Simulated scan of single mutants.
Amino acid sequence: MSEKPQADGPKRASRMNPDLTELLQGWHYEPGKINVRLIESPDGTQFIQVRLDLGILQMALDGRPDGQRPEGYESILDLYESWIEEAERENHGAGPLETPDAEPIEQGDAPLEPPRSNSGSPSDSPLRLTHEQCVALRDEAIQYYHRYLALLTLEDYERVIRDTTRNLRVLDMLENYAEHDEDKQSVAHTRAHVTMMRARALASLAMRDNEPKAAIHAIDEGMEALRRHFESIGHEELFEQSSEVQVLQGMKQALMPKLPVSQKAELRKRLDEAVVQENYRLAAILRDELNSIPD
């Protein structure tokens, strides 16, 4: 008669329990708000957690949100930027860029290999991003999008500025280096939102430091960037209708009463300088500011 197999008690007891029920029951989901918190691992590393209706999303506080380091770089964006910088500095579009010694790793279906050489014309960029590489950039940018929304809820404005500035670099890279037009335009519609969130974080950071003048300056720069964006896509009429512009205008109106009286004189000076320089767009913004300050 064969012996009954012995239960692997100690080894089984040491295994991690994959059931999340206890975690989920300890942190209830609240509809209509971003449920976010900072947690600390046993080794002291901090992570962001977002409570969703069906689970918990965890992201690294710094670096790439999923904690990966493609080819040793902080992100795929940084990796691509290094290849493009190298090609523009040394190759000048005259030949293909050598593949790094490290074996390329997979990012979904997009191998992390140098962008294609584009030596057909001296005026062209030396490299072009394939469709697969553009998809990898977009997917990575979504991770940073989720993180900067959570960071804004935590009022970590410095990191919101970092992540939104970083995602604007993604949009610039796709616009300048994507091989196909559809990839150039695939996320162009998100520029208004990223620009607004960055300006909002800059203004909030300035207000936390009790600098209303700097806060309004950040908002003005954000609205000017939004105006340029809508002009560049041939839809200037969308500027006033934009929800992003309305958010920044609302912030600005709330800040105006907090400005010192001397601010009015400085605004008049800036308005005069803008008119002399024929920067009528800025002059219009400054004139609106002056009119909104109570006497």
Rank of each mutant, 00 (worst) to 15 (best):
P96L: 07
S117A: 08
S123T: 02
L149D: 11
V194Y: 14
V187R: 14
L154H: 08
H131D: 12
Q143R: 15
D183C: 11
V160M: 11
A188K: 15
V170C: 11
S117D: 08
H131F: 08
S121N: 04
Y148N: 13
Q143C: 10
L151V: 02
M173Q: 02
R138D: 07
P115K: 06
H131A: 09
L171V: 09
H146L: 15
P115Q: 04
T153A: 15
D109I: 05
T165V: 00
E113M: 10
E179Y: 08
Q185S: 05
T190H: 13
D139G: 07
E175H: 11
Y144L: 12
Q133C: 04
L149S: 14
R116F: 04
S121F: 04
S121T: 00
E182I: 03
H131E: 13
E175R: 11
A150T: 08
V187A: 14
T130L: 06
R138V: 06
R147H: 12
L112P: 01
E106I: 08
D124M: 01
Y148T: 04
V160E: 06
C134G: 13
R166P: 00
N167D: 12
E182T: 07
D109C: 07
Q133P: 03
L151H: 04
L154E: 07
A178M: 02
R138Q: 10
Y144E: 05
Y148C: 08
S117C: 02
I161K: 06
V194S: 07
H180L: 03
E113F: 06
E140T: 08
C134F: 05
D124F: 10
R162K: 09
I161N: 06
A192K: 11
Q133G: 07
D109Y: 11
L171Y: 09
T165N: 06
A188S: 14
P126V: 01
E103Q: 15
S123A: 01
R138C: 10
R128S: 03
L137D: 04
V187E: 12
L152Q: 15
T130M: 07
E179G: 02
R166S: 05
R116Q: 06
L129Y: 04
E158R: 12
T195A: 12
H146Y: 15
I105P: 01
A150F: 03
L152M: 15
L151A: 07
P104V: 00
R166N: 02
G120D: 01
L129N: 01
E179V: 01
N176F: 00
D172S: 09
S121A: 00
N176E: 13
H131T: 10
Y148S: 12
H131I: 07
E179K: 01
L149R: 15
P96W: 10
A141Y: 12
P114H: 11
Y145I: 09
D124E: 00
S186A: 14
L129P: 01
T165A: 11
L168Y: 02
D172R: 13
A110G: 06
I142S: 15
Y145D: 14
D163I: 09
L97C: 06
